[in-house]
């Protein structure tokens, strides 16, 4: 299994933001995306996850292998922590692994309503979803926002040992140091000329 990206061009709101992005990740590899705000990290991740069409180029990975995690966690406030995770497990047709509660330090919070969790705890719950659904190719957009240093280390350990160690792939947009060895890709050189194309005809779609 590998993630292959070739000459990818992506657009936000019809304006091209990145062009000619190419990289290949083998099983067990991670890539950290860097770049200033607005360079197109989120747009690139959404395009890779298939949420929006690419302007050009190609993205290849096994179908149904990708999972996307964004700033919003997709947590229902009126459901408990266990119910939230059980829902995603059922949607993905897998059993809810018991280990996930320990891995993401949610053991004491199992029956708490998600609405009463703190921002960091919600984030841990959001990330625990990735541990539940067992998708192999992860596209993570700022996964460590509002996590304390302990939780960041905990998440990095899960990513390194349980995900990448099991042959997973991860593309991560982050501004902080995750404490793991992964190649970095600075997106600044791939900036697209906003006037290049897309622009006008996109408005008619």
């Amino acid at each position: 299994m590998e993630l292959h990206v070739e000459n990818l061009g992506v657009a936000r709101g019809g304006v091209p933001v990145l062009d000619r992005v190419s990289f290949t990740l083998a099983a067990g590899a991670a890539l950290v995306l860097r770049g200033p705000n607005g360079v197109g990290k989120t747009t690139l991740l959404r395009t890779l996850a298939g949420l929006q069409p690419a302007l050009s180029g190609l993205v290849r990975y096994p179908e149904g292998a990708a999972a996307y995690a964004s700033h919003a966690d997709g947590i229902k406030a009126q459901l408990s922590v266990t119910e939230n995770l059980a829902f995603w497990a059922a949607v993905h047709g897998v059993a809810l692994p018991e280990t996930v509660f320990a891995t993401f330090d949610l053991e004491d919070l199992r029956d708490r309503m998600a609405g009463t969790l703190s921002a960091g705890q919600k984030r841990r719950l959001g990330l625990a979803r990735l541990g539940v659904i067992g998708r192999k190719v992860l596209f993570l957009d700022e996964p460590t926002v509002s996590l304390d240093t302990f939780s960041v280390r905990m998440f990095a350990r899960w990513l390194r040992e349980d995900h990448l160690g099991a042959g997973g792939i991860a593309v991560i947009a982050t501004h902080i140091d995750l404490g793991m060895e992964a190649p970095e890709l600075d997106l600044t050189p791939f900036r697209a000329d906003p006037m290049a194309r897309g622009g006008s005809d996109e408005a008619f779609l």
Binding site: Y68, G74, H92
Partner: peptide, 15 residues
Amino acid sequence: DHEDGSLPLLATSPL
């Protein structure tokens, strides 16, 4: 579902 971000997650799920 749009506000809390579930919608893109559902869109990338097997459903």
